[in-house]
Design a protein around this nucleic acid. Structure first.
Lengths: 196, 196
DNA sequence: GTCCGCCTGGACCGATCGGTCCACAACACG
DNA sequence: CGTGTTGTGGACCGATCGGTCCAGGCGGAC
């Protein structure tokens, strides 16, 4: 009997995510969210709660989507090493650097809010743990496939790879040349995951 | 004949830096800066200009101090490799993780403001270029001293080391265990700068 | 001691913030 | 087709933001 929603929740969340991604949490005003989503304040609050709840929801869905994507890669990849390679290099393939400049919503949020919002720090730790677990699986598979040295500790190597990629994300955000970032990514990969 | 300054500029800048460091740019209000420095608004504006000018000044001095410190290490170190090692591992030696949680003022600022403030992005690129130049010198020296493989490209390796350290800074900021960070730092060093 | 100058701190400003609330509209049900 | 319930969007709120301005104080120069 009630009046049904007049908006597509996924479209709204996508618009909201994009706005937070580009402007950061503090830099995004409710007005920004309203114009990006096309909703009024009442609808936004009624559907998603306050600004922080909305942000945390968007962040968690972003993390989950990334995790699912990475696991999907691993399921479908020909070789485990390809997943690690794609994870480290993929973000910087765009020659314009536009992608790189956006950075990663999670990394942006973690740097901006970890100190003040415990939930964000916890979410970041959770997500990075999940990511490095998938990377460790990929590295173990690469070891079986002869693409990674058997002496490597898969878990520790996965974490080091994650750290390297995170650093590249930071450098990408400040506008570093994507070609240089790609070279650095290659150096990280060959150094951290030797073949023999 | 004029009335002289009644405050120590260095002390004020130090207090301001600490506040920006902990709270971020947007998260720091003028009230925060006033109470941290002990100055009124008039004095703050008269001496340093508006909030953004003050922030950029503090950031540049922070970068310069870091650069001088790193160069000083290189001048006094017994071996080049020690400088690289200290650069990567040094920040996470504090077992409480308090240091790690603060992160790096430059990295924090770069992630928060690069997208919206071109000066910050440019300053970050400038500072990271300076840092990787010193690291490259250290790696060249390590090669001469037999602590780094001769086949390494010093400049590229320095950039990869910088990326790895940046990633560790991000992970430190979200509260990752310092012991785990140290292990990752060791993995990055041994992988990126093999000895033979 | 006098006076001119800059320094100082806080009152004050308009803008904007996140959040609340309400009058109205739109739809499903009986 | 009436009725009830919820979605909707904008008016409105107090708080706080960064920034301006000024009256008074303090200190050197003479």
């Amino acid at each position: 009997m009630p009046r049904p929603r007049q908006f597509d929740e996924d479209r709204v969340l996508s618009a909201v995510r994009s706005t937070f991604w580009d402007k950061g949490y503090a830099g995004t005003s409710l007005e920004d969210l309203m114009s990006a989503s096309g909703l009024g304040k009442g609808s936004l609050y009624g559907a998603f709660g306050d600004k922080q709840s909305l942000f945390l929801r968007v962040l968690r869905e972003y993390d989950d989507a990334n995790d699912r994507m990475l696991r999907g890669w691993l399921d479908e990849a020909d070789r485990g090493i390809d997943v690690v390679r794609e994870f480290v290099i993929g973000s910087f393939r765009d020659p314009s650097g536009e992608y790189a400049r956006r950075g990663c919503l999670l990394a942006n949020a973690a740097m901006e809010l970890s100190a003040s919002t415990a939930e964000v720090a916890a979410e970041a730790r959770r997500s990075y743990a999940a990511t490095s677990a998938v990377l460790a699986d990929a590295i173990r598979r690469a070891q079986r496939e002869g693409d990674a040295a058997a002496r490597l500790d898969p878990d520790l190597t996965a974490q080091a790879v994650l750290a390297g990629q995170l650093g590249l994300v930071v450098l990408g955000r400040i506008g570093q040349d994507p070609a240089a970032l790609t070279l650095m990514a290659e150096a990280l990969l060959t150094g951290l995951i030797p073949a023999n």
